[in-house]
């Protein structure tokens, strides 16, 4: 009887995303999430590492960096066609692994890899996919997944009526996996000889470098769409100067070419942790928040009281930027802040 109760109900496969021989740091949160889920499902956590044979040393070091984590198993799949990411190979391998065992869940990051191939896998398996999960409730068959909608202004809870569950995980949404495990490593062979890699990665390029390294700034004044037009961005620069900091921007501002691309804060730009992050007219989409929410003190200036930025702020001012910012500049000069 007791044995029956302790029996593990299947596996959670977590794709380990890596690039140029390095495991990407958001994977530790994905594994952390998987462990939470494993407790609810009484399942095991298996990290899946896909890599090329010819990069044997690299793949060994990939395994090395996952080996100390508190998970049950590491599954490695080697093939020259897995040297770089492609949706064709990744979807095929994961489909193959799902068909080989009792797989409860497939987890990847809500990232340029996870969101890129999981919809393809979902179509093939004819199962549902939940994107950018940031919470899970319930147990066993009654799991409910939480995620943000409406640009972060509302939260939805969803249930999935098919299995395995396919999930992408919000970056920074969960604490990192604990150290101290001794997962066993098993190599699984998957025949990729019939698989054509239709997307060919030619190179990786860094987006253009500018004069400023925002990751080193201790004070950042950042402007968003709420400024209305390019000319208005000047007051953000003026406030940054008055406070002795650097100016930055949210994605829409950069997209509209009000400010240079290297000033962009968010998941597709810089991740910053200054002592002060002052957000002017930034609503606070998830992508922006993930790039700045670990700042020591966050000040949000916005006319929209529902703006999600207030959810991460230390101080908030609900009002007109064009009144508040000039007042702040004057006050900063008066109080002689730097």
């Amino acid at each position: 009887m007791e044995e029956e109760e302790n029996k593990m109900a299947g596996k959670i496969l977590v794709l380990i995303e890596h690039r140029e021989g390095k495991v990407l740091d958001y994977n530790w949160g994905n594994l952390g999430f998987a462990v939470t889920l494993a407790n609810k499902l009484n399942a095991e956590v298996s990290a899946v590492i896909l890599s090329a044979v010819i990069l044997a040393q690299d793949s060994a070091s990939l395994v090395q960096s996952v080996k100390s984590k508190k998970i049950n198993e590491i599954i490695t799949v080697h093939d020259p066609k897995l040297e770089k990411y492609s949706p064709d190979t990744y979807a095929y391998v994961m489909q193959n692994l799902v068909s080989q065992g009792d797989i409860q869940v497939v987890v990847a990051g809500h990232t340029s890899i996870g969101w890129d191939f999981l919809p393809k896998l979902a179509v093939r398996l004819n199962v549902g996919l939940v994107s950018e999960v940031n919470g899970v409730e319930g147990e066993g068959e009654n799991l409910i997944f939480k995620r943000q909608v409406y640009n972060g202004k509302l939260v939805e809870k969803v249930r999935v009526k098919s299995k395995p569950y396919l999930l992408t995980v919000e970056r920074g949404g969960f604490p990192d996996i604990e150290e101290g495990g001794t997962p066993q490593v098993s190599n699984v062979s998957v025949d990729l000889s019939q698989i054509e890699v239709r997307t060919k990665i030619i190179e990786y390029v860094k987006s253009e470098k500018g004069g400023v390294d925002l990751t080193k700034s201790s004070i950042i004044v950042s402007g968003g769409r709420g400024l209305g037009k390019k000319e208005n961005f000047q007051i953000v620069k003026d406030l940054a100067e008055a406070l002795g900091g650097d100016y930055a921007a949210s994605r829409p501002v950069v997209d509209n070419e009000w400010v240079e691309r290297d000033r962009q804060v968010g998941s597709s730009g810089k991740t910053v942790k200054p002592k002060l992050y002052l957000a002017c007219g930034i609503s606070g989409a998830i992508q922006h928040l993930s790039g700045m929410k670990k700042s020591d003190v966050i000040v949000a200036l916005n006319k929209d009281p529902d703006a999600p930025i207030f959810g991460v702020a230390t101080y908030g001012v609900i009002g007109d930027l064009f009144e508040v910012i000039p007042a702040l500049i004057e006050e900063a000069k008066k109080q002689g802040v730097h």
């Binding site: 549902g128 969803v158 999935v160 959810g311 908030g316």
Partner: peptide, 18 residues
């Protein structure tokens, strides 16, 4: 296969001072 159970306003983390 994915079905919304509920939609809600985010729980304020309660630390912002307006």
């Amino acid at each position: 296969k994915v079905e919304r159970v509920t939609l809600l306003e985010p729980q304020p983390e309660g630390k912002v001072e307006i």
